[in-house]
Each structure stands twice: as C-alpha cells, then as structure tokens.
Design a protein around this nucleic acid. Structure first.
Lengths: 144, 144
DNA sequence: ACCAGTCAGTTGCAGGTGAAACTAACGCGA
DNA sequence: TCGCGTTAGTTTCACCTGCAACTGACTGGT
C-alpha cells in the first residue's frame, strides 16, 4: 500500500486550481448574474464582443475556448435580451456577424470596469512579483 | 467609454484560473474516468475515504467543500460499484459511517499514486520556488 | 411526554452542459 | 452541374448539478 501520510488533497494541483477558480468565479458572478441575469458563458461572449469588436460565433469559440453549443445558446440569450444583433454575411451566409447593441455595450462597459476592479482586488493580496508569477504560471498550465 | 486597450481576457484572474483548472482536471480525468468510470465527485469522495479513513458523508462535505447532494449521489454510485459500504451508527442512526471495501482501497491506491505522479508532472514545468509560490497563492485565493 | 426546531441524507425538479446528430450553405474536383 | 466533403450553427438527448422540499432521527424546552 502506498504511503498515505505525505500527499494531501491540498497538495493536488487540479484540486487547488478548481477551488481557487470556483471561489473567484463565484465572487464575480454576482455582477453579471444579479445585475443582468447572465450566465458565465454569456458574460464571456459579451466580453469578447465588447473587447475585441464584431466577430462570428466561430471566432468566439476559438478565442474563448468555448464549445460551439455553449456559444450558440449564449448568443441566443444575449439576442433575446437585445444585447446583440446578428447579421448574415452576404459572401457566406453560414457566418453571422455578431454586434453589440447600445444596451449591450452599456452592460459590457459596466462589467468590464467591474472585472478590472475585481481582478485588482484579488491581486491586492499579492506583491507585483507574486501576481506576475501567478499569471505566468496559470498561463502555462492553461496552455494559452 | 472605458479604455478597452489595456485589460485583456488573459489578464482576468477568474478566467485564467478556470482555464488552468479545466486543463489540469481534464488531464487527470482520464485516470478515474476511463479506468473506473468514475465522476470527479466520486474520485474526491474516494480520495477522502482512502486518505483520511472512515467518516460520514457530512464529514466529506465539510472537508472537501462538496454539496451534500453531490456526496449523496457519489456515495450511492461508489456503493453500487462495491467500492464502499455504509454502516449506521447505533448512537445516532442519522449518521452513516462510510468505509472503503478491498476493491475500493485498491482503486484508491492506484489513483492516489497516479495523482501524485500527475501533480509532479505539472510541477516539473516550475522550479521549487515557483511551485511553492503557486500553491500558496492558490490556497490563499481558495481560502482553504 | 410532547412538540417545535434541527440535522443527516435523499429525492424531485428545473436548469446547464457536452457529444453526437442534424441543417443549411459553401467549395472543389470530375 | 453534379456530388462529396467540409464548415457554421442548431437541436436533441442523456447526464450532471444546485436548489428546495422532503423523510427519518435526534434534541431541548416546557
């Protein structure tokens, strides 16, 4: 039998990452959920369109590493809330250019600021070097 | 309108944490999923019972930060697979002492070793100091 | 002894999610 | 132009999840 006295659950990186991710996600969730009734995927789609401009659903899938079914449903939800509009491209009607409406942009602006603030709050617990090292390490693990 | 040129999605810690958590979890998932057909919650329950000995479902909820419904279903699944047995405590029949069977222990031993190895593999990308700093930072964010 | 409150654990329900099947549209070779 | 393969996006299905309601068991005040 293996030695059960050394390796603890708190030493297992996937567990640590999940707990930390859950904590930080739940913390920020209140902004987009309570204010706008959004889900996380919808917030991510909104972020992409607001931050990087018009694009297709496929672009969002690739850039945000989201499954196309999630994006499809998030786009429908955001469309129903009048946060974005779709426009089929004439040269290839399979693609739909997604564009935020005025209220979509307004929501994005508020959430974008909140995200920056929230990020800064978490980082406030760390020195600049620690924070930078943390980001780098996470980027490496996420293979982004 | 806010300045959209600075803060990127890759700078947003909850996003980074989620991506890193997803990556590392998917990587380890193959062990308990393909070998034993387990879900993540079942693996965590198995881990607790194997690593810390007999305990009740409530204990697992508290120690693993899992919702009681998840634990309840995971226990049922592990019981169906003959990986654990329940025993009602005579002094309080609401509590059930959970105990791994021989095959449950065997599965735990293998997965426990695999987890240590997997953790070491991830950590191989970092120096000792970096790894230690990463764990500490994650523990702080997770408020464990 | 009673009953209201609480606790461990389960179940029903209403979603969210991924995999796979599907639709519509495009493109390229014959 | 036909047809096969591919692509963007949707839908279906089966499953996991959280919440709330529930069951059965204990507890403490009256």
């Amino acid at each position: 039998m293996s030695d059960h006295t050394k390796f603890d659950l708190r030493d297992f990186l996937p567990y640590l990452l999940n707990q930390a991710a859950e904590m930080s996600s739940l913390g920020f969730q209140q902004y987009y959920k309570s204010q706008y009734g959004m889900l996380r995927t919808e917030w991510r789609v909104l972020f992409h369109l607001g931050r990087y401009g018009e694009m297709t659903a496929k672009d969002i899938c690739d850039r945000a590493r989201l499954h196309k079914t999630k994006v499809s449903r998030a786009v429908s939800a955001l469309e129903a809330r009048r946060f974005l509009t779709r426009e089929q491209l004439s040269h290839d009607r399979r693609h739909e250019q997604l564009k935020l409406t005025t209220s979509g942009l307004r929501a994005f602006d508020e959430l974008y600021l909140a995200a920056q603030k929230y990020d800064a709050e978490i980082m406030a617990d760390f020195s600049d070097q620690e924070g930078e090292a943390l980001r780098k390490a996470l980027l490496k693990i996420a293979e982004l």
